[in-house]
Design a binder for these strands. Structure first.
Lengths: 174, 174
DNA sequence: CAACATACAAACAAGTCTGTCTGTTTTTTT
DNA sequence: AAAAAAACAGACAGACTTGTTTGTATGTTG
């Protein structure tokens, strides 16, 4: 069995995804992770601290999956298109829960600037990802906005319809 | 002074916007609206019920403002572009709090289907708005996705940069 | 003036929340 | 095997949550 710290992060990921950040309590996390409360506070100094650790892990996981998925493509255009296929795959795998980062963005207050910065940093890396694939800066931003819109809309309508439309659009503009 | 019901909805709008739905308690709403708790539950059967009433009011307010704002434009292209200007205006007026509907989308669970439906209905009306302005259905969807992406990204980066980029993009594709 | 509707205050129930603390047990290292 | 580190259970504080209830006061309408 894995370490308490890993079990906490594992369960937090599942519960934050399913119920949202504010609706998930420490007690539920430790109970489902089979960890004592004292142990929790030995590894994380607060719930917000856990949130940041979760987002960092999620960032690593999500990006490595994206790069793994898109690297199968031969040319740049296909790579961009496969990024949208990646959304579809993740939607189906994670039951249209949307983006962890954008979900938490909607839940935090102005006081939680440290969390906001992690979210901004994640999305910045995504913009860089598209900027490296597309030389034209405006076009790269264009694709980024379509990408973000696709994630949100598939969560909202619990469907890949908008993602598929985006694929058709990207096909025509690149 | 307005009626208790109106005062509740007024304060709920402010607080939901500032702190989010789950982080705002009934007690705070009634205290700042100067309404007794018994009176609250005479007008709303639950907090979720208040949420739906709030979203319905917000829908009316937001759409009427959008139509008022865009109706100043002469032709269709200008109307579409002014919709993006409307985002900028709202961002500045409401301090980059983003879309009430998308914010609440991230906070609700699978059990709150009645709230989800109100959110979907709002966004559906927005899609219809663009569909009426643009005959080409894929282009209308394209603009809708850019619009949604613009709202989210301005909230995330607390900036109108992406909205302005969207305006340049829409200029070139319509 | 009487009757009714509405709003009030404030206590209460039953549960949640984060975070702290004490003391015991298990595991690892020397 | 002894010492140190880590994890355990679980009580506790103190404040929060939604929703109910009781009884009182105010205001409007017949």
């Amino acid at each position: 069995m894995s370490s308490p710290r890993e079990r906490i992060l594992e369960q937090a990921a599942i519960l934050f995804h399913h119920q949202g950040y504010n609706s998930t309590g420490i007690n539920q996390i430790i109970s489902e992770a089979n960890v004592a409360k004292a142990s929790f506070y030995q590894h994380f100094k607060s719930k917000d601290d856990l949130c940041i650790e979760f987002l960092n892990k999620r960032h690593e996981y999500w990006f490595s999956k994206l790069i793994e998925f898109t690297s199968k493509s031969k040319n740049r255009k296909e790579k961009i298109l496969s990024a949208f296929d990646f959304i579809i795959q993740m939607n189906e795998r994670e039951n249209f829960r949307g983006c962890s980062f954008l979900n938490i963005l909607s839940e935090i207050s102005k006081e939680q600037q440290n969390i906001l910065r992690v979210i901004q940093s994640h999305k910045n890396d995504l913009r860089i990802f598209f900027n490296q694939l597309v030389k034209d800066e405006l076009l790269a931003t264009h694709i980024y906005i379509l990408f973000e819109g696709s994630i949100i809309e598939s969560q909202l309508f619990e469907s890949n319809e908008i993602v598929n439309k985006s694929i058709a659009i990207v096909e025509s503009i690149t």
